[in-house]
Nucleic acid binder design. Structure first.
Lengths: 336, 336
DNA sequence: ATGAAAGCGCTAACAA
DNA sequence: TTGTTAGCGCTTTCAT
């Protein structure tokens, strides 16, 4: 057994009640300066540290938030989580981040985390990646990240996907492209659908007809982007630009283009979304829509803590914007 | 206040003592089948879930491990953590992963996590990234990841860095390269030094003289790899191959080569370490040493739990190996 | 096989 | 300003 000193040891040492010690370590006002000094000396001398568990026990709060994402290795998710941690730490909270690759795992995880009251609140990254959103308990503070909630009373933080896609497509149009293909993420994810909407709106606005056959559904992987371009080529589609809904798929497109001896950007312009690390190191460097991903995590924590601490659940859906980063994978049509 | 049922509610409901309920939820043997059924029915009916905090309180264990890395976004770290989580979950443990970009943050983090007994053990990824290792308390179970411990009594899991570098360099030598440059990580990290050792041994074995001026220290970033090649070129070094100690720097080298109109692999062979995602999507696809990164995390948890649970601290330094993945950034000298 | 009592280390509510 | 008394919800020990 560990012989760590308790609050009572400190009390004994400094000749006050344990409650006064509690007051000191919690920075309460109503303690006389002398007593405070006395107690602080005893704390120092004994090397006393309050036990987080005992505290949680007494106040019924764990000061821990869970953050569940499909995985940890995707740069986007990792950045969000890192942002969330930074913010949480400021408030003396901890983030317990876990990955749930499927909804079954998600269900079990939430069951452990929330059911056993291990956390005070829940951040769910990509809640609509599958049917996992169904397994979120109603009685726990939750914030969705990466998709605005379909239900009324859940807060969310996400990218303004429609606008991002609109801006990306608009960029291609302004460069003079007329045959712009779209590669989406999985269409069960709201963000894929919203981005498809933005693409459509830009096309509409430019007076281009929307062509179903210029859209292929991918799964965010580079391979799926590669396959998508191949399928366009096999079908003999005429296209001079591709908007891939994320950078990885855009990278796949550039790879397929290289293999097919299609020059990017002169014969085919490519734009992605994310500005992931190394986007500028591909050949050619990738034009993309840069999001402030850590901020998404930070905002999520901020909102969640408002709910957790003040029970203040004014519903909010925060949408952040993205910035166009022009590199060499897009170029004015006919230019060189 | 939450009205969740406690163990006593279940006891009342099923007409037994709360202690018997405790026995049932802990799967103890000495409970009669009938009583068990009775209690289980009550648990079901009331929707009872034991409180993790109360449990921790009573047994003095949190069933939580901390995992601290320099950041979460580096793919290598993220993979290790993900591996650690998977393993931990099997043992019903949770991982509280935090990033500490500098040793001051690390110190505060450890202070919070370990000082307040929020976790049962500690996994430190890249303990020698700076002087953070100095802030690790002696009285807590620890496992180092990514570097074998310099101290005697600390367990570690890492890549067999010397061998990996030896194999990589050997690959270049066997292809006929004679002027092989080395780009290292920060030399304060053991893994950079070990990899430099392996490079040297391969050179020695081939009868090549070690040339100080063919070595440049980078910082793992693509930019530093790019700068490194530039500096070789500016100094007019003759080189036909580069061994970069990680993939990102290798990518930087390829980028610099492209900018300088040097053809990879025909004029310059490049090999990295990690096999990070998209390594195969660069131009040309990168030859690299692939490590089983999630396994490093898994092993770390396994070892840590042995220490935590069985107090069994037989010191161990586990070294894992890597596999050569030949892509198109290396080629037999003179071949095409 | 079951129960009673004590306690894990703290905070909350009230009293002095 | 300070101390006293009760818990928080569980496990552990010792009886029975």
């Amino acid at each position: 057994m560990s012989n760590r000193p308790t609050i009572r040891d400190v009390a004994r040492q400094s000749g006050v009640s344990h409650q006064t010690v509690s007051r000191v370590i919690n920075g309460k006002e109503d303690v006389s300066p002398e007593t405070r000094t006395l107690v602080e000396a005893a704390i120092e001398e004994l090397g006393y540290r309050p036990s987080a568990v005992a505290r949680s026990m007494a106040q019924g709060k764990t000061h821990t938030l869970a953050c569940i994402s499909p995985n940890l290795t995707d740069f986007t998710f990792a950045s969000m989580i890192e942002g969330a941690e930074v913010e949480a730490r400021q408030y003396k909270y901890f983030i317990l981040s876990s990955s749930a690759s499927d909804s079954q795992t998600f269900k079990e995880l939430v069951n452990e985390l929330v059911g056993h009251r291990r956390v005070d609140g829940l951040i769910v990254i990509n809640p609509y990646a599958d049917d996992r959103f169904q397994f979120i308990p109603k009685d726990v503070p939750v914030v969705f990240v990466g998709a605005s909630a379909r239900e009324e009373n859940i807060c969310s933080v996400s990218l303004d996907d429609e606008k991002v896609a609109y801006d990306a497509t608009r960029h291609l149009i302004q460069l003079g492209h007329k045959h712009i293909a779209l590669i989406t993420g999985p269409m069960e994810e709201d963000c894929s659908r919203d981005r498809a909407e933005g693409y459509r709106r830009a096309l509409d606005e430019a007076g281009f007809a929307f062509d179903e056959s210029m859209v292929v559904e991918g799964d965010w992987t580079a391979t799926s982007g590669q396959d998508a371009l191949l399928s366009f080529l096999e079908q003999g589609r005429v296209l001079d630009a591709v908007f891939a809904q994320n950078d990885r798929m855009a990278i796949g497109v550039m790879r397929a283009a290289r293999d097919a001896n299609i020059k990017v950007p002169s014969q085919l312009a490519v734009i992605g979304v994310d500005d992931m690390p190394l986007s500028s190191y591909f050949d050619p460097p990738l034009t993309t829509m840069r999001q402030d991903i850590p901020r998404i995590g930070r905002e999520a924590v901020r909102i969640l803590l408002e709910i957790v601490e003040k029970k203040q659940s004014k519903v909010c859906g925060l949408k952040l914007s993205a910035e166009l980063i022009v590199r060499q994978s897009t170029l004015k049509k006919g230019g060189e």
